[in-house]
């Protein structure tokens, strides 16, 4: 059980797709101008990556390694089409806003990477948690970027007015340059936190060794 939690949790922080692995930066820039769009995109990717991991893991013994990439892509594309049809039917406005980026989920590096390095070598349950954790980390990062950009660029969060009416929104935050700058700063701060954690861990180990020797 603890093992599964670790598999889940590493995608949230230690290997967060956007902030630590710097993968899938294209949607992180393009659809995070509002928190709502970011959340919809994050949930879609979370669903795709989790179900794809399960599918790949289920069929891992019957897929010839020589044709594995086309097989993975077919599987991802099928799931993405599913998501697209559901969104188009039930959330047409959201579907229009996400437009091309929804179809582009098919070629996200992070999804193929998880299928290749994890799901193809592990059983179904760990693969599920790996995809779920990675997807959750991705969605979390997207929403965090979306909230900050929407707050400063429009004064709202999820469309709800937060800043007072006297707030003069800084348009740059909902334009691409603001997205680039913000993601850069957030990656930097995540690295800073990671460095600090590593240092703390090393210190702990040193202490433990010293105690053991004494």
């Amino acid at each position: 059980m603890k093992n599964l939690w670790e598999i889940f949790y590493k995608g949230v922080f230690a290997q967060n797709p956007i902030f630590r692995l710097a993968l899938s930066l294209c949607p992180a820039l393009a659809v995070t101008s509002t928190a709502t769009n970011a959340l919809a995109m994050g949930l879609s990717v979370m669903f795709v990556i989790t179900s794809n991991n399960v599918v790949v893991s289920l069929f891992r013994k019957w897929v010839n390694p020589k044709v594995r990439v086309p097989v993975y892509i077919t599987s991802i594309a099928t799931i993405v089409t599913l998501v697209q049809l559901v969104l188009e039917a039930y959330f047409p406005i959201l579907f229009k806003e996400l437009s091309i980026y929804l179809a582009l989920i098919v070629v996200f590096a992070i999804i193929l990477a998880r299928a290749e390095v994890f799901a193809a070598k592990n059983t179904v349950v760990p693969s599920f948690f790996d995809g779920f954790g990675m997807g959750f980390g991705f969605a979390l990062a997207m929403v965090a970027i979306g909230i900050i950009r929407e707050l400063f660029g429009a004064g709202t969060i999820f469309g709800i007015q937060i800043m007072g009416s006297s707030y003069d929104p800084a348009l740059i935050m909902i334009l691409p340059p603001g997205g680039f700058i913000l993601i850069g700063l957030m990656i930097a701060s995540f690295n800073l936190i990671g460095e600090y954690q590593d240092k703390a861990k090393a210190e702990k180990r040193k202490l433990a060794i010293q105690r053991g020797e004494a």
Binding site: D168, A170, L171, I172, M173, L175, P177, G178
Partner: peptide
């Protein structure tokens, strides 16, 4: 440039 993109009218 940052300000021009943020508050183009002002």
């Amino acid at each position: 440039a940052f300000l021009l993109a943020s508050w183009p009218i002002a």
